[in-house]
Design a binder for these strands. Structure first.
Length: 101
DNA sequence: AAGTACCGTTAAA
DNA sequence: TTTAACGGTACTT
């Protein structure tokens, strides 16, 4: 098991990103503020761009404050760029299931 | 609307 | 070791 060489800053970003609920979107600024460095929004984008753990880090849930997708999603094809919409649909479906109980 | 400054990591020279 | 580049937001013009 090789040690993952990541900086403390990156760990902070990854942890913050992990806490994003399914089907929800957060902004880079949101993460930057959560890790206590509202000035380092770009560094946050860097950590996500590198994305050491694609499976546990939902970078596609991270968007710009503008509401538009960031560089990562921006480079994606339309299909993958709609991941967040699919997740939202899932959440909605689950919500309806729960309501029927 | 466009330009600039700011932070942190990585690649290249 | 030093330099350049990438990436999002807020402020200024």
């Amino acid at each position: 098991m090789k040690k993952i060489k990541l900086t403390e800053f990156e760990w902070s970003v990854l942890k913050a990103t992990m806490t994003i609920p399914l089907g929800q979107t957060r902004t880079y600024k949101w993460i930057a503020r959560k890790i206590g460095q509202p000035q380092a929004v770009r560094a946050v984008g860097q950590a996500l761009r590198k994305n050491p753990y694609p499976l546990m880090i939902p970078c596609h849930r991270v968007i710009k404050s503008n509401g538009t997708l960031g560089a990562y999603a921006g480079k994606m094809d339309g299909k993958k760029g709609r991941l967040i919409e699919i997740e939202r649909s899932i959440v909605k479906a689950i919500g309806e299931e729960v309501s029927s109980y």
